[in-house]
Design a protein around this nucleic acid. Structure first.
Lengths: 344, 344
DNA sequence: GGTACCGTGCAAATCGTTTTGCAATCCCCG
DNA sequence: CGGGGATTGCAAAACGATTTGCACGGTACC
């Protein structure tokens, strides 16, 4: 037999469908007696409301979309888990879209999610500029932006204090005697790289050093990408004693490249990453990095979105900052090792 | 203005809603002329069909659910990505549910997904026995089972050859001179541990050894769980020269515990894992393990499910095996190191 | 005893599509 | 010139819920 509909429950309980609906939703009082009969019928038939019909009528789907570059980047599963944990209590589910940071796919996923009438969006866009984003979005579907891509007034934002944390990490390198510090990030305008590079520059300038454009490398946040980029730079004679990376995956790639080039870490070159993914403490030498608080960001995004959806929170867009936490490990220790190179 | 409905498009194009529907779906021929006008109107208004209404009518939601223990376990994001890559081409999206291997939540998610009328399910259940599963499922929602939990005839299955691969890995340990080999898995009936333990036992028995129950430890597939379990066992005086783990996360935990207990790997104790997550080659010593082919399994699940959904494939449930690949790294090298302990 | 009101229940409209008949138009051909 | 297909368009009935009015009893109050 097919899935029972509300009419079947009504028949079984000897009341009208309207009454069943009210009994279940509690949106209008119903006698104890009737409530009991309805519950019994629901139980007996194993009834569950068809959420499509429900959603069509109520404009609520109990679903939120999470649009991210790549679920395979270890930062995001943790975010995703945080989101789920924050919203599943309230009966919401999350659909995950990996865009690979590709503008066309970012747009396609957003459009699709809107066509599905999701109740809210959590998005970490890498390549969609704010104005394009604005025309993609639906004014009454709440949005939470994760990450530093600027998008004023489109929705709430949950960000880290990346610039500050990276500056701190960079100063840590300076304090330990490093002077030729490279930065491995991504192309301008893609993802959080720009912001983190600013932190790197802040620290350098603050120490009275001049910025050397040859020291900033452009990659794609992946291990392989960063490895190749750094290998090429080293082969090209790049002279460095430290590297600041836009994320841990890149940092691990850089570690690979340095190792293959016969450079000691941290002896010859110190390396710091960003995110503090699980692998950061596993890799050897263990990665000095900034804890990006993935889980907290996920739960904050989820809770914030939920509040917007229920209307519990309204008014102007908020910005919540979840500060990063600098973690010193072996790849860039506090104490300077016996210096083989004494400075710039 | 609100989202345009099909009626608005019809008005703008000067035809009836029916015609618009036919023009867009192509389910009935439409004159060139009309088709052009409809397309223009769609373009102009930015129309996209409301998928709830569409789903309600057609019984198709273009959505599949992926029910797994934990997206935070590095094996699963790769699977998820494989699934997405296999189905998004066809316009499908995936909603991900992390159950923590908890029976109640496994059931709750399945029920919820069915209430949402997903077109298909891909599930990796850890604690739901086949008969319970059977009564949870809907006979006409196709299911693909990922992993070794037995569930005959409920749907297609995509599995590895875990028993064989683990036996191979274990024989590798035996060949390199190990004799007191422990197994770190999970409780009976939860997840793939049982199957993998059988492979371990096969190899031991095949070598004429007797099974020692004190050598099999029960944990929960996590790094911390395995670390604690192994630490306790070592403190209790467990005498071993190798460990076979049910997954890489456990193996990494075991590595932690051995390190803290002052045991050399692989000198004193060799370790093998299962899955070949990214971290396996990052950790030191790098983990000897079995590549579980996460991405391939994901795409195979996705493609299989799609074929069932479209009806392209029907008939009895299939079982597709994606064989694992044994990978030797430093944690259990082929050559026996200078033996400090000569045997059992 | 009549009126007002409250608590309950039902019929019907609605959400936005798809799809089934049926009708109209056109063309071709005998 | 009329009849039979093909084409193409429309009205209306689904899909399965929620929600608005309205009606019906019963109780309480004056």
């Amino acid at each position: 037999m097919p899935r029972p509909r509300i009419a079947d429950v009504a028949k079984a309980a000897g009341v009208s469908p309207t009454t069943v609906s009210h009994a279940l939703s509690g949106r209008r009082p119903v006698s104890e007696d009737v409530k009991a009969k309805v519950d019994a019928a629901v139980q007996r038939l194993g009834y569950r409301a068809n959420m499509l019909a429900q959603g069509l009528r109520t404009q609520r789907t109990q679903t939120v979309a999470l649009v991210i570059p790549d679920i395979t980047n270890p930062f995001y599963p943790v975010v995703a888990r945080g989101v789920q944990d924050a919203i599943s209590e309230a009966g919401y589910q999350v659909v995950v879209c990996s865009t690979d940071g590709d503008a066309a796919r970012e747009a396609a996923f957003l459009r699709d999610m809107l066509a599905r009438s999701v109740d809210g969006l959590i998005i970490d866009l890498f390549r969609t500029p704010p104005d394009t984003l604005a025309e993609l979005l639906d004014p009454d579907t709440p949005v939470v932006l994760l990450g530093p891509m600027p998008a004023p007034q489109l929705g709430d934002r949950v960000v880290g204090d990346d610039r500050v944390s990276v500056a701190e990490a960079t100063r840590h390198l300076l304090r330990s005697g490093r002077r030729r510090i490279a930065f491995v990030g991504a192309g301008p305008g893609v993802g959080p790289s720009d912001l983190r590079r600013l932190g790197y520059e802040d620290a350098l300038l603050g120490a009275g050093l001049t910025l050397d454009p040859r020291l900033v490398l452009e990659s794609d946040y992946t291990r392989l990408g960063a490895r190749a980029e750094m290998a090429a730079a080293l082969a090209g004679g790049l002279d460095i004693d430290a590297v600041v990376c836009a994320n841990d995956l890149s940092a691990i790639g850089v570690l690979d490249a340095l190792h293959r080039a016969g450079r000691e870490v941290p002896g010859d070159v110190a390396v710091v990453g960003f995110d503090d993914i699980d692998a950061a403490e596993l890799v050897r030498p263990a990665l000095t990095t900034v804890d990006n608080r993935a889980y907290e960001k996920g739960t904050v995004c989820g809770r914030l979105l939920l509040q917007r959806i229920t209307g519990e929170l309204d008014g102007p867009a908020r910005e919540i900052v979840v500060p990063g936490a600098f973690k010193v490990r072996d790849s860039a220790p506090a104490i300077t090792l016996p210096a083989q190179r004494s400075s710039s």
